[in-house]
Design a protein around this nucleic acid. Structure first.
Lengths: 266, 266
DNA sequence: GAAGGCCGTATCATATTGTGAAACCCAGCC
DNA sequence: GGCTGGGTTTCACAATATGATACGGCCTTC
């Protein structure tokens, strides 16, 4: 008797539910149907108990039974998942985290999405703290290759698409620092890949620098970029980890899970 | 005491889980955050009980708490849902149901997906029952406008795209019955829309008729068509409901939920 | 500004609920 | 045929979740 539970328990989260989650964890770990024995083994539950819980979940479509004694995640989860997805909204999910970042850094934090060959800024922290309020109003647009956020998208596109973009747009320069040649831009994107964050070093506007990190949705698609923009003299490269972390947090909030660490919680 | 449960219970599906599902049902019904009271009311659970269960679910990400006492479905469901989605495979899900249909009708049952301007058949029931085995081998291709399955996709595309298709392909005819003019094809698609199934009346091959119904995935996209093909003399229009039903069953199996009846189960 | 609701959360004795050892059953295998 | 090894079902037991009650914010009302 008594739970010989492997891990620690938070408070009193109804053992049944906790066990249920354990089972779902195991099921989500193996993409193929799992046998009862296996489940019982890995969760540390009695086969009997596991069976009972699984049966209950089966009745509601949480799990499906193929061969008797063989279980896998059920479509009901897909239904519910889609419901969640439909209510998720990047701006709303991002805003609180953006504000947190804004508190920490004290500079403008922006959320930009791609629209064709441009980045459009859809959200911006609007505290009055910073006296010199630089930059992008909400709704502002800018070419991909001169913005930090835009570079994230260009990298995602891959080299062939980058070439087309270059040909299509001619890579216009807005400041002396703008990267207006394909090789220069390509090298820059390589840097972005290595760092996981992108920079804009006075490429769109003199005296303005940016750092941006990618935000991905539940299917792994790059859906937005989070950027901090500040006057060049106040800019600090130390922000990079913070920006990246915040972007990751937002990604998580909208359902992104790192490819290597699947949905399993434990 | 005693469960004053509204509905009937299957066997002994662990009350807690059943209750949990009730809560999820209510949560999935309202797309916005729901208050504890509301939940308790609609599920018939004691506020205290509801609270406890919700807390447990909250600990695992099944539900999220915004304002205290305000609950909504959590991202964990999205994670699990995506896992389910990734393992779902139309062919595998469709096959058993196709075989069932094949039993009932005794004619070839085919599964076709779109590939550019063609339908390609990716699965076919292969019982030896019917001596005269007509039709499409797996892997066979055919233009959209002369196949029942193809018409489903053309209808989905809408009129403008249909015009482009017509211009692009020239609507070649394969038999005297083929519809080779835009007006004729457009009228035909109207029929498809009204009936919910599409027909092919010896349009691809003399003496061969088909009925097809649409298969949709969890996001409502048309992903395949299910068709029954038979020699014209054996063909029966009575199959239509059966084909439609089977296609609907397959859709359900891969996560499609009818738009008007959301994920709620009860 | 105090009183009164209202709603979410925490407490705790109670008995209803889920538990798990053992029995059962069904295949497949020696 | 008997045996092993899984899945499923049973059942007496007590640990478990239950829900009446109490608590504590917060807002509205008077």
């Amino acid at each position: 008797m008594v739970a010989q539970s492997t891990g620690a328990d938070a408070k009193n989260p109804i053992q049944v539910i906790e066990r249920m989650m354990k089972l779902l964890d195991v099921l989500s770990y193996y993409h193929d149907p799992v046998s009862l024995k296996q489940l019982a083994l890995e969760t540390g539950l009695h086969p009997s108990t596991a069976h009972r819980i699984l049966a209950a979940m089966g009745a509601t479509g949480f799990v499906e039974r193929g061969e008797p004694g063989s279980y896998q995640l059920g479509i009901r989860l897909l239904e519910l998942g889609n419901l969640v997805k439909s209510r998720i909204n990047i701006r709303d999910s991002a805003l609180p985290l953006m504000q947190r970042l804004h508190q920490e850094i004290g500079e403008s934090v922006n959320l930009g999405v791609r629209q064709g060959d441009e980045i459009v800024y859809v959200e911006r922290t609007s505290s009055g703290r910073s006296s010199v309020r630089v930059v992008h109003l909400v709704g502002a647009r800018a070419p991909l290759h001169v913005t930090a956020v835009g570079k994230l998208f260009l990298l995602e596109d891959g080299l062939p698409a980058l070439r087309e973009y270059a040909k299509r747009t001619g890579l216009p320069g807005l400041t002396p620092n703008s990267l207006t040649s394909l090789p220069a831009l390509s090298r820059e994107l390589d840097k972005v890949r290595r760092h996981g964050v992108a920079f804009d070093n006075e490429e769109i506007e003199q005296g303005l620098r940016c750092i941006a990190a990618p935000i991905r949705d539940d299917s792994g698609d790059l859906v937005a970029g989070l950027s901090v923009s500040a006057p060049a003299e106040r800019h600090s490269a130390n922000w990079a980890p913070l920006v990246k972390q915040t972007a990751d947090d937002i990604s998580a909030a909208i359902g992104y899970v790192k490819p290597d660490q699947p949905a399993a919680r434990r």
